[in-house]
Amino acid sequence: TRRLSELRVIDLRAELKKRNLDTGGNKSVLMERLKKAVKEEGQD
């Protein structure tokens, strides 16, 4: 898996959309949101 920081905004939005998460905001907001989601998934 590529590091989140290497993803483009369009990629971040696609990942968030797959998880039914909000896709609004700038790159840093999107990255934080996705990071949190990935962390929570890992705790399942």
Rank of each mutant, 00 (worst) to 15 (best):
T1A: 11
T1H: 13
T1M: 13
T1D: 14
R2V: 11
R2S: 14
R2E: 15
R3H: 12
R3V: 09
R3G: 12
R3F: 09
R3D: 15
R3T: 14
L4G: 08
L4V: 09
L4C: 01
L4D: 13
L4Y: 13
L4M: 14
L4I: 15
L4E: 09
S5C: 05
S5W: 03
S5N: 14
S5P: 05
E6V: 06
E6K: 06
E6L: 03
E6W: 02
E6P: 04
E6M: 03
L7N: 08
L7S: 12
L7V: 10
R8D: 13
R8S: 15
R8W: 01
R8M: 08
R8C: 10
V9R: 05
V9Y: 00
V9C: 03
V9S: 10
V9H: 03
I10A: 15
I10H: 10
I10P: 15
D11I: 00
D11H: 00
D11Q: 03
D11C: 03
D11L: 00
D11Y: 00
D11R: 00
L12V: 00
L12C: 03
L12M: 11
L12H: 03
L12A: 07
L12E: 03
A14G: 09
A14M: 15
A14V: 09
A14Q: 07
L16K: 03
L16T: 05
L16E: 06
L16S: 01
L16M: 04
K17A: 14
K17T: 10
K18G: 09
K18F: 02
K18A: 13
K18Y: 04
K18E: 10
R19S: 04
R19A: 05
N20F: 06
N20A: 07
N20G: 14
N20Y: 04
L21H: 01
L21D: 04
L21Q: 08
L21A: 06
L21Y: 01
L21N: 00
D22H: 06
D22P: 14
D22R: 02
D22I: 03
D22S: 10
T23I: 05
T23S: 11
T23P: 07
T23A: 11
T23Q: 08
G24P: 00
G24S: 13
G24N: 13
G24Q: 07
G25C: 03
G25Q: 01
N26W: 00
N26I: 09
N26P: 13
N26L: 04
N26Y: 02
N26K: 12
K27E: 12
K27H: 03
K27M: 07
K27D: 01
K27R: 13
S28R: 15
S28P: 11
V29F: 01
V29D: 14
V29K: 08
V29M: 14
V29T: 08
L30A: 06
L30V: 06
M31H: 06
M31F: 04
M31P: 01
M31N: 04
E32Q: 07
E32H: 07
E32N: 10
E32D: 14
E32M: 11
E32I: 03
R33C: 02
R33P: 09
R33A: 04
R33S: 07
R33D: 03
R33G: 09
L34N: 07
L34K: 10
L34S: 05
K35F: 07
K35T: 10
K35S: 06
K35R: 10
K35L: 08
K35W: 06
K35A: 14
K36M: 08
K36R: 13
K36T: 12
A37G: 07
A37Q: 08
A37V: 11
A37W: 02
A37R: 05
A37C: 09
V38G: 08
V38Y: 08
V38E: 12
V38H: 11
K39T: 15
K39E: 14
K39G: 14
K39P: 13
E40K: 04
E40F: 05
E40R: 12
E40Y: 00
E40V: 09
E40A: 13
E41L: 04
E41Y: 00
G42S: 11
G42A: 14
G42L: 06
G42R: 12
G42V: 11
G42P: 10
G42I: 03
G42T: 14
G42E: 15
Q43R: 12
Q43S: 13
Q43G: 15
Q43N: 01
D44E: 15
D44I: 09
